[in-house]
Simulated assay, not measured.
Amino acid sequence: MSEIDSYLKNNDSLLYTYRITPDIKRIAEKYGFLDYMVERYLEFLGEGTEDFLSSCSVPLTKSIRCNSLKIDCGKLEKRLTDKGFSLKRIEWSRFGYRVEKVPPRPTLGATVEYMKGFYYIQGEASMIPPEVLSPKEGELVLDMASSPGGKTTHMAQLMNNRGTIVALEKNPARLRKIRSNISRLGVSNVVLLWMGGEDVPKLGIEFDKILLDAPCSGEGLIPLDPSRKTKTKPEDLKNFQRTQLTLLASGFKVLKRGGYMVYSTCSIAPEEDEVIVDFAVKYLGMRVEKIQGIPGERGLTSFKGLSFSPELTQCLRIYPHLQHMEGFFVCLLRKE
């Protein structure tokens, strides 16, 4: 039995046993969520559960990332303001703006500036992983699950198109989308490979930094997609867990000693977040590094009878009812 199989088997009975009370059923019905989801939220959100559930029906403020590879951000701000948009700089982001007002026409995706690649429409929380990884000019960086290319092109921008990003995607249709974004945004330092992240050790390359924005349930995207209130079943979470652990282990093999990996998901599910990072700490010997200057809640140290490493408090949890962004989880790991 592999370490991953053993880890999953040891945790399975605790993670996937649910105690659904009449009160849980009432709350789930009130907000249109599945019972088991509410049971979990009550454990790690406590009194904030209904605030979270309610916030999932409130539209989020749109956001964009100015593409400094093609335009000065001050000039972009003026051009969009002249068109009737109202922008506010995101305090912790080097290139991010909240779009607080949108004119009747044009839409964000139909401006000349958008078509020229002067900006990328990107959720605010999804800008966090590249900022945390902070790739530098000249580094060799791996993006293990790169579609649709928002974080890939963000990292290229942070690197000023210098150094190399190896971006992986195993879905041919998604590859076309990434190529389109890379071209539109003027990115020139990305090597795009038709490959799944689990196969990356076959390349025989070691990387300075790795972004693993893992495939997940998208449980943090409910404000953007209400169907996710009832879409993911416990069996789906189990499948995502196995994929996430497999990708993490593969990434660990090709990360240089002393190198950094950001593990992130657009999910608030501990099964996909702390459970995965705890494996990195306890089985792979990775260390969790503190994330500075970005708003968020601390990672969990326990869930459904499982105890996680105290280091996980240095991970970031993002919630729509607290940070007013899509739900996200971000953790910075170092290979010793």
Rank of each mutant, 00 (worst) to 15 (best):
M115V: 09
D72H: 12
R174N: 15
Y7Q: 09
G299S: 06
R179W: 00
K9D: 10
K209M: 07
R317L: 14
R98F: 14
S68I: 01
V190G: 07
T243K: 14
N160P: 00
R179H: 04
I318L: 13
S93Q: 00
G84M: 09
R228K: 11
G293E: 00
T111Q: 05
L284M: 11
M195L: 15
Y41K: 13
F33H: 02
P234H: 12
R98M: 08
T153G: 10
Q314T: 03
N239E: 15
R79V: 10
E169H: 06
S63Q: 09
G32D: 13
Q244M: 10
Y260P: 00
G258D: 11
G305N: 08
K253L: 11
C73T: 01
E326K: 01
Q292D: 14
R287S: 09
G220R: 08
S180W: 13
G32N: 11
R179G: 05
L158A: 10
L133D: 00
I294P: 04
D51T: 09
T313E: 15
G150C: 08
L247D: 04
E272H: 07
S183P: 05
R317E: 11
Y41Q: 00
S86H: 06
E311S: 15
E336G: 03
L34E: 13
H321L: 10
L14R: 15
L237P: 02
K231C: 01
Y114V: 02
L45V: 13
A214K: 03
T230I: 15
D213Q: 08
S2H: 15
E50F: 14
L333D: 04
L211Y: 04
Y120T: 01
G285W: 07
C216S: 04
G218E: 00
V330S: 05
P310M: 12
D143P: 04
K136L: 11
L247G: 08
K229L: 09
G150Q: 11
I71K: 13
V191F: 11
C56D: 07
E219N: 09
E326V: 02
T230D: 03
G186H: 01
K170G: 02
G84R: 04
L237E: 14
K70D: 05
R26E: 10
G196K: 12
E326D: 07
A173E: 14
Q157L: 12
P201V: 01
D236A: 10
G96E: 03
K290R: 15
Y31D: 12
V330T: 11
R174T: 06
L192E: 01
D225Q: 03
R242I: 02
L193F: 02
Y18L: 09
L76N: 03
K83P: 10
L193Q: 04
G197K: 03
G84T: 01
P215T: 10
T152V: 12
V112F: 12
M195R: 03
E100D: 03
V38G: 12
Q157A: 11
K75L: 07
S180K: 15
